[in-house]
Nucleic acid binder design. Structure first.
Lengths: 359, 359
DNA sequence: TTTTAGCACTCTCAACTATCGAGTGCTAAT
DNA sequence: ATTAGCACTCGATAGTTGAGAGTGCTAAAA
C-alpha cells in the first residue's frame, strides 16, 4: 500500500518527445536495460538475441539506425555498439520504464530503522544514509524549511560585552542558537524579561507569522511601545534572520560514486565532491524540485549544471499533511538502475514523512 | 614573535636514528628537497649539480649507495634515481629541516580572518579551512573537549509523551541539546522547577565537577532528597552522558588530495574519503597527539593506519592558558612541503588559541 | 685513501606496427 | 519487410624498437 510508486509516466520534460513505433520502443528499452546492466555499448547481435522478437541482427541494425537518427542512441565509434543518449534515457524513463514496487519485507526493514529515532536531524540523516546505502549511490536530503515551524520558546542569555546568546526552540524540540550583537548591554534580569515577553507573545505561532509581524506590524505600533519591548523585538528580529536560512543539505555515500568508471576521471570527481561540500549549487537544484509532484528526474545535462553532466538526479518531495517539508533523492551516474532507484526514493520519502509526522 | 615555530629537532620517533656523516646528510637533505619539489626520483647527476659541493656524479652515487644501505632512500628500479623512504623522511624532518617562520604579513592576514568571528564552532571551522587553503592539503581540527567548560544554565522542555528536550548552555554560548526519555511525564511547571534547581546547583562549576557529583555524591545524599530533586538529578545525568562524547572532527579541503599522483588510485582515495566521513579512525589518531608538545608528525605508515600509508599527518595542540583544548593539523601525501606546512600548522594553532581566549 | 672518468648494463617510456574481433552500413536476394 | 553476405572501420592488445636516464663497477687520477 504505502510503497506503491506514484510515478507519472507521461510528464514530458523537454518539450515533445520523438514519436517511435512499438518495435523501436521495444528495442530501445532492451538496449537501455542491457546497457545499464553491463555498461558496454550494445551491438545488434546481442540485441537480436536478447529481445523476445525473433529478428536477425541486420534488421536490428536498421532499427538502430532509425533510433540514432532520432537522437535516442549513439555509437561511440564506428564499430562499437549503441549507447543511449540523454534523450534516449528521457524516453525510457518517461514512457518505457516498468516500475515494480519494493518488497514489503524491505520496506518494513527500512521503516524499522526510522522507528528507533527521536530527533528530527537524526531522522534526516538516517534517510540520507538509507538512500545511499540501498542504492549504492550518493544520497541527498534537503532539510525542512522552517517557515511552518511553530515558535515555542526563546531564551536570551548575556555573554561578554554586548553579545547575547539567543536560543530559539521550535516545533518538537528543534533548537536553533545564535549569537547576536546588541547596541547596549543588558542585565540578565532584563534579558529574562525580554525572553518572557517574546515567548508569551509568539508561542504557538508559526515562524512565518512571527517574521511577518516583526517586519510589518512592528512599524505601526512603534510609538506605543515601551523601551523594553522595543529592545526585545529588535533582538527577535536578529534571531529570525538566521532561522530563515537554516535549510541545509545532508549528503552521504559520496564515495560510492567512485566505483563507476564513467565518472572515474579525477577532475570530474573533484568538482563533484566540491559541489557536495559547497552544497550551494546542489541546494539550488533541489530547490527547483520542490514544486514538482511525485518523483522527478534530471538526466545528464538536463539539470543545467555542467558538473552533473554524466550524472542523473532522482528526487521527490517529502511532506506532512500536504505541506512540503523538503526534498530528498539520489545522485548517481546517468547509467543508474532507474527501475530500482525510483521506488527506493519514493518509499524513503514516504517513510521519512511518516516518521516526521509522529513528532 | 607569535609565529616562531617551536619545533624541537632532536625528538626521535622510532627509536634511534642511523648515524650518518655530514656530507651524506647534506645530500639526503638536497635529495628530499628536490623530490618534494618535483615528485620525480632524483639521480646522481642532478644532485651533483644541485648541491653546493663540487662533486662528480660518480661520488654522489657512492654516497647514495650508502644511504640506500642505511634504508634512507630507495630506487624504484635500476635506472631511476633515488626516492626517500619513510625513515629518510623521518631523519629529514627530525634533524635536517630548516624551518623558517611565516612572513609577518601572512600571519596578520590569517589573524584578521579570525578576528571577525564570534562563535566557537565558526572559529574552528575557519581554522580548518585556513589550514587546507594555505597548504592545499586536507585540514583537520579536533573540537575542544568540553570537560573544562563551565556549566551555565539548563533548560528542560516537555515534548510529547515522556520525552523531554534538554538544552544545556556552557561557557560562552555553547549550546548542547538533546532529547531524553523519562520514566514518567512531567508538567511544564515541574520541569521549570527542575531546571531552576539544577541551574542554581551547578552554575559556575565545570562539567567534570558536575559529572563527578552526579555519579558519586548523588549516592550518598540519596535518602535526604525529595522526589523532585531526585528526578531533576536523574535527568541531568542523562544530559551529561551526551555532552561527554561531543568532541568531533572538522575536515576541509579533502578534494585537494586528489591532485597528488601518489594518491591518485581510486581505491586509495575512496578509503581515505571514507575515513574522513567516518571520522572515527582519524579521531583516534588525533587523540594520540593530544599529549605531545609542539608540532608532531606522522610519516607514512608510522601512524599505524594502513589507509594513511602514503600520507603524512602534521599536527599540534591548541591551548588556552596552558590547558589543551584540542588538536589540529593537516593530512597530505608523504611528499609534502614540510618546511612550509609545519609553520603553518603551528601558527594556525596559535592564532586559533588566541581567538578562543577572547571568549 | 678519496675522487673521478669510462663503460657496460638495466629498465622505463613512448612510438610504432601488426593482428584480432566486434560491429557497422550497404546491397542484393528472399 | 526481412535477411544473408561482404567490405570496411575502429579500438584494443601485444610485440618490437630505440632513446634516454641512471646505475654499479673498475681502473685510473689526485
Amino acid at each position: 500500500m504505502a510503497q506503491r510508486a506514484n510515478w507519472q509516466p507521461p510528464r514530458s520534460h523537454t518539450g515533445s518527445e520523438p514519436q517511435i513505433n512499438e518495435r523501436a520502443a521495444h528495442f530501445l528499452k532492451a538496449l537501455i536495460e542491457r546497457y545499464i546492466r553491463d555498461g558496454q555499448p550494445v551491438g545488434s547481435r546481442t540485441l537480436s538475441r536478447d529481445t523476445g522478437l525473433d529478428l536477425s541482427p541486420a534488421t536490428v541494425r536498421n532499427v538502430m539506425a532509425d533510433l540514432e537518427d532520432m537522437g535516442l542512441v549513439s555509437s561511440p565509434h564506428t564499430s562499437a555498439g549503441r549507447v543511449p543518449t540523454v534523450l534516449g534515457y528521457r524516453v525510457f524513463v518517461d514512457s518505457l520504464l516498468t516500475i515494480s514496487p519494493l518488497e514489503e519485507v524491505d520496506v518494513a526493514q527500512l521503516r524499522a530503522e526510522f522507528a528507533s529515532i527521536d530527533e528530527v536531524t537524526a531522522l534526516l540523516d538516517t534517510a540520507s544514509r538509507m538512500l545511499s546505502g540501498v542504492t549504492q549511490l550518493a544520497g541527498v536530503v534537503m532539510l525542512p524549511r522552517h517557515e511552518r515551524d511553530v515558535f515555542r520558546q526563546i531564551e536570551l542569555l548575556p555573554l561578554t560585552g554586548t553579545r547575547v546568546l539567543a536560543i530559539l526552540v521550535t516545533g518538537e524540540g528543534e533548537v536553533h542558537n545564535r549569537i547576536i550583537h546588541t547596541d547596549k548591554t543588558y542585565s540578565p534580569a532584563q534579558l529574562v524579561e525580554a525572553s518572557n515577553v517574546l515567548t508569551e507573545m509568539f508561542t504557538g505561532k508559526d515562524l512565518r507569522t512571527v517574521r511577518r509581524y516583526l517586519l510589518e506590524d512592528i512599524q505601526q505600533t512603534y510609538e506605543r511601545m515601551d523601551a523594553m519591548m522595543l529592545h526585545a523585538l529588535q533582538m527577535a528580529q536578529r534571531v529570525m534572520e538566521c532561522a530563515e536560512h537554516k535549510d541545509d543539505l545532508l549528503v552521504s555515500g559520496q564515495t560510492n560514486l567512485m566505483e563507476f568508471d564513467e565518472l572515474a576521471s579525477l577532475e570530474r570527481l573533484k568538482s563533484l565532491f566540491n559541489a557536495f561540500t559547497e552544497k550551494r549549487e546542489i541546494l539550488h537544484l533541489l530547490d527547483r524540485c520542490i514544486e514538482a509532484d511525485g518523483v522527478q528526474i534530471f538526466i545528464g545535462n538536463e539539470s543545467g549544471y555542467e558538473l552533473l553532466d554524466d550524472c542523473s538526479l532522482v528526487t521527490t518531495t517529502y511532506r506532512v499533511e500536504g505541506e512540503v517539508l523538503g526534498v530528498l533523492g539520489v545522485i548517481g551516474p546517468t547509467r543508474m538502475n532507474y527501475q530500482r532507484v525510483i521506488p527506493v526514493v519514493d518509499v524513503t520519502a514516504r517513510l521519512l514523512a511518516a516518521a516526521l509526522k509522529q513528532h
